[in-house]
Nucleic acid binder design. Structure first.
Lengths: 273, 273
DNA sequence: CTATTCATTTCCATATTGTGAAAACGTTTC
DNA sequence: GAAACGTTTTCACAATATGGAAATGAATAG
């Protein structure tokens, strides 16, 4: 921690990229280190952790404080993250929306699986398709963005259902009913609950021709910053191409990419998963 | 836009406080201005808005980018808030554990009322939304954490106003003004004072389509250990669902849970209430 | 295809600006 | 009262940030 005063002689890492602003880099690492240590840190504590001089740290902190990116708690002598950092940081969520963040990942999912990828968000007792990356196969699934489908008989819908309690499922079953779309549609609430319970540990949901004959579909959930389900992605294709043997692998693909999208959006998976 | 390039000759404001770090101050205003313009801004756009040289702005941006406080969207040539800014900014929430304490209560409020619950803290003459638990209804209120709204035309804001004196209200009215957002917004200071006086004995504030047409909102105050208002919670939903007949019951719900959160935080309601 | 505009990026000489040692100043603890 | 710990100010120095200028790139129009 006592090194790097002589950067002149030993410009080890810092020179890595061309013209960076030293004071800013330092200030941001101050912010980071404060954010990492929830209750806050003392000035000298921060200086020690970063190997900075107390006076330098103090100057950076007061500047950050001026703009309300940090705040000083007189009682505990602790520096904490300030309100303005919260406000500015939340601009992250509005800047890039779900679809534009998810789309590149969806493309990679399509390349990997060869099948059509769908992105959908829950809306009450339905899901709404937001975006699609189409398979290059000739025979492929088609579903327009904006389309509403019930929760109980689609891959994305069942992925969302997996995050709900049995009580929620009963409520939906009684208010909306469990419409039968194909022979394989699960229309019995108890059977549905049991089926979902089996899916939860896997981390993905399976729609096996329950929505349309010949169509199989595997889906996983994307979580927001409060670990609440905010969307789901699915890989769907003809049952002829999505064999039972491949299910495990395809399921892991959706789960993996759903996780990637979750973190890219600043979201968090629930503690259980 | 051609001014203040000659800061050398006219160091107008910057000298205001003793030892501030210029580059950091500038970088933070870059962050602020990006956060304020949701879709992001172009480099030259930022430089223009702040009166900085493009090269300087570019250097600050790349440094911020290095630490992932901003990100560059190649397609739109727009600079946006980065993930790390979001992460660090959210450290604000964990320093005060208001949100984590309040959230379970908010969930119960949602279960009981069926409507969306918001938590906000006062910030000068505004409130800032911190957290939300969303209603399961299809038609529901949407408002992002981090958003700033004026005090006089939101449920949470009016709840905070209720704890202030008439003199405070006059001061706010004269400095910030009482912007009209809908037909029903109260823009007359005297009328506002009279309205709030009527609400105080009830223990909750009502926003009856004063912020957005069709939106009703009921809010109560959360107090800290010095019996000072530190936050407010609200139940909000479409006027169609929150009937006048229900107001009393919903108001009591917010008051009850605000009280629960207050005590959970070790706070005290003021002697009067 | 060339001209034009708008945005990003690199370069460099300059002195403005950030830097850290040291010491003064408060608090709290023993 | 001394010691330990954290904050704040001061100051001389040169390292570091700065902005003008010009190169590069991308997109649009003519």
């Amino acid at each position: 921690m006592e090194m790097n005063s002589q950067m002149t002689t030993a410009p080890d890492a810092p020179k890595s990229r061309s013209g960076q602003v030293q004071s800013l880099t330092r200030a941001l690492s101050v912010l980071n280190v404060i954010a990492d240590n929830s209750p806050g840190l003392t000035l000298t504590g921060i200086a020690r952790k970063l190997g900075l001089a107390p006076s330098t740290t103090h100057r950076l902190l007061t500047t950050l404080q001026e703009e309300r990116y940090v705040q000083y708690d007189r009682d505990s002598s602790h520096w904490q993250i300030g309100l303005q950092a919260f406000v500015a940081g939340n601009g992250f969520l509005s800047s890039r929306d779900l679809v534009s963040v998810a789309r590149p990942f969806m493309r990679r999912m399509m390349e990997k699986s060869g099948e059509t990828i769908n992105l959908a968000i829950p809306d009450g007792d339905h899901v709404i398709y937001l975006a699609q990356v189409e398979s290059r196969e000739m025979m492929r699934v088609y579903s327009k963005p904006g389309k509403r489908v019930p929760l109980h008989c689609s891959g994305v819908g069942k992925a969302i259902l997996m995050t709900m309690t049995d009580a929620d499922i009963d409520r939906i079953a009684s208010t909306e009913g469990l419409a039968r779309l194909t022979d394989k549609t699960i229309t019995d609430p108890d059977q549905l609950k049991q089926h979902l319970a089996g899916c939860r540990p896997l981390g993905f949901a399976l729609d096996d021709e329950e929505h349309a004959v010949g169509l199989r579909c595997v889906a996983s959930v994307i979580y927001d910053e409060y670990a609440e389900p905010m969307a789901a992605v699915s890989i769907s294709g003809p049952a002829a191409r999505i064999s039972t043997a491949q299910l495990q692998e395809i399921g892991e693909t959706t789960r993996f990419f759903a996780g990637e999208i979750t973190t890219a959006l600043g979201g968090q998976p629930p503690k259980g998963a």
